[in-house]
Design a protein around this nucleic acid. Structure first.
Lengths: 186, 186
DNA sequence: AAAAGACAACTAACTAGTTACTTGCTTTAG
DNA sequence: CTAAAGCAAGTAACTAGTTAGTTGTCTTTT
């Protein structure tokens, strides 16, 4: 095997992503990551520092890449919700990583995410001023509810998952339609 | 009963609830629970078995108690959402426990929760048949979206929490109003 | 072109500390 | 006295992080 540090880093990142998504930070084992990545444990520490820092690297690499992957159009929030839904379907680990991040890093404030949020809130406010969006809710209120609806199907309790879920297309339709009702002028 | 084992059990349960809510199953430390409960570690194992079983006991004791704490009225889903919101405000640990449960126990299916869900779905179906509830969504779809909206404010990312949140009363109003729009006949 | 040197990639084995869980004994109430 | 409650002191296994050394590759010198 030729030596390729870049490839090794990538393998470690991939393995770490799967491990952290499955077990969270506290539950993940560095040895398991090393095994899965076919890399030596010491390399993980050399390339990424501590376990926590490895999580940060994974989170930044995967989640931040998707923050702006979904196009945001304040005048079409149903469409935004639908595209968010699609992303959660395509990359199921992303939401799990985000949830672990929320639970295990309650004080972690990534500048890129903060900036992305601010931009979205500003766009909503602008759309409201232009009369293209309901003013029944503040920008933060809108973003909060739209996001909640977009990930509603992916935050099911294990028990609700027992009930037969509608088709993916129908779930998406429900999300989009719910947001449409939320933002429609009265 | 010599000495008060019931009180000791209760102290352990309380301490375990706080610990699990804060750190999850993998991140929790039995020693910390014992210290916080002013109880000996061996008693934890004597009364509750393993750490996993202790989590189950906490989850059953706290969360199951609240499953039917909130009165469910299929003809007044906005009211149900509001009352759910109130519960999340009153007992912030409950939602965290539930989230850890979802992440760390993806296969855990508690009969009491399943039964409670089934009952709610049946009530929704009945209300729909009686023409008292929109039929634009299936019972599962309605329950999913209503729940997502009810906990929308409590699933904020750390980054969104930086933005000044509206007053509790206003958040509640937003939840109730969102559900009202969701279920209104068109 | 070949040998020597430099350096980065990589590794096995280890350390120091932690953690879930147990055992054997003491204390207390009835 | 007895039975249950309670505890100090363990133990075996695990785990994050380190160390000292090896291997492969590229560059420089002759």
């Amino acid at each position: 095997m030729a030596r390729d540090s870049e490839a090794t880093r990538a393998r470690i990142l991939d393995a770490a992503e799967a491990e952290f998504a499955a077990y969270g930070i506290a539950g993940s084992r560095v040895d398991r990551i090393a095994d899965a990545a076919l890399a030596n444990k010491a390399l993980i520490y050399k390339y990424f520092g501590t376990k926590d820092e490895l999580f940060d690297a994974v989170f930044a690499h995967r989640v931040l890449a998707f923050v702006d992957e979904v196009e945001f159009d304040a005048t079409d929030l149903p469409g935004y919700a639908g595209r968010s839904f699609d992303l959660y379907e395509r990359f199921p680990t992303t939401l799990r990583l985000t949830t672990w991040y929320q639970l295990e890093r309650p004080d972690g404030k990534l500048p890129a995410i903060v900036a992305s949020n601010d931009a979205k809130l500003a766009k909503i406010e602008e759309a409201q001023r232009a009369g293209k969006l309901t003013t029944a809710y503040s920008p933060l209120e809108l973003l909060t509810e739209v996001r909640a609806l977009a990930m509603s199907w992916h935050l099911h309790t294990p028990e609700l998952a027992l009930v037969r879920r509608p088709s993916r297309a129908r779930c998406r339709e429900v999300v989009v339609e719910s947001v449409r009702r939320l933002v429609e002028h009265d």
